[in-house]
């Protein structure tokens, strides 16, 4: 087990070292992602200040939800982002190398990238979260703080599980960017507003197909003691369960896909 952590550390370190070979590119990455993050927040602020509230949620509820989402997303970017490059690993035959090493391929892929640019996700989202918490009264206690931490990590896992599931398609079709594009629209656009404003179809998709609503929308109900408008009252509590289940399903699907890996000729 100790050895495993050493492997993870070395893989991450190697990838960090490789990135630092090109320091300017790295610096621009951090600054760029931070500014995009700040702009995302601005894009929430503008419609909310115009309409006062959206779907019955005021500025602080929306801000809380958004910062929750963005912090989870930041964890995803720091830990799980390498799966966005999964198509390439299949197309270029890098999998050949991953499969002959005595460490699980998924672990090797996870460790193959180290995105310090994820800091750019954290700077605006944590700032937003702190401001929100200072403006509204949330009953913080040991349980709710613990729950918050679990939610943040579970949210990242949900995002990763969906990404892993999509990745598995590349064993059959090699390229999955259009599917990833559709998923991204729900992740980066639709999930930024309370799901119940969208009518019937979109909340269904956000809950059961690309379940990004469990990253921030449902958990926000718990912290603000809000009534659940769609589906079931217990949904604000099951984010960790959703994360574990999704990851299990994605893992099984990935394992099936691996049998269809063609590799590339020489």
């Amino acid at each position: 087990m100790v050895n495993l952590f050493k492997i993870i550390f070395l893989l991450k370190l190697k990838s960090l070292k490789a990135q630092l070979q090109y320091p300017l590119n790295f610096l621009i990455g951090v600054i760029g992602v931070s500014s995009i993050g700040a702009m995302d927040i601005l894009l929430i602020v503008i419609p909310v200040s115009a309409f006062k509230s959206i779907g019955g949620w005021g500025f602080w509820e929306l801000g809380f939800m958004f910062s929750l989402w963005k912090m989870s997303h930041g964890i995803h970017q720091a830990l799980f982002i390498p799966f966005w490059g999964h198509d390439e690993l299949v197309r270029t035959g890098v999998y050949d190398r991953l499969l002959v090493r005595p460490v699980h391929p998924i672990l090797q892929i996870l460790c193959s990238g180290f995105s310090l640019a994820a800091i750019g996700e954290w700077v605006p989202s944590v700032t937003m979260f702190i401001i929100t918490c200072s403006k509204v009264k949330i009953a913080w206690n040991l349980f709710s703080i613990l729950f918050l931490l679990i939610i943040l990590f579970s949210g990242a896992v949900i995002e990763w599980a969906i990404s892993l599931f999509i990745s598995a398609f590349s064993f059959w079709f090699v390229r999955t960017d259009s599917l990833r594009g559709i998923s991204s629209i729900f992740l980066f656009r639709v999930a930024h507003y309370p799901a119940h404003i969208y009518g019937r179809a979109l909340p269904f998709i956000l809950t059961f197909i690309f379940p990004y609503a469990f990253m921030a929308y449902y958990p926000t109900h718990y912290f603000f003691k809000l009534d659940v408008h769609i589906f079931y009252d217990f949904f604000p509590y099951i984010t960790p369960l959703v994360a574990v289940t999704l990851l299990g399903v994605a893992f099984i699907f990935w394992s099936i896909g691996l049998k269809y890996y063609h590799s590339t000729g020489t």
Partner: peptide
């Protein structure tokens, strides 16, 4: 498994 046209070495290190 060693392939002449694929590398396990990191290009920049």
């Amino acid at each position: 498994f060693i392939a002449g046209n694929k590398t396990q070495l990191d290009w920049s290190l």
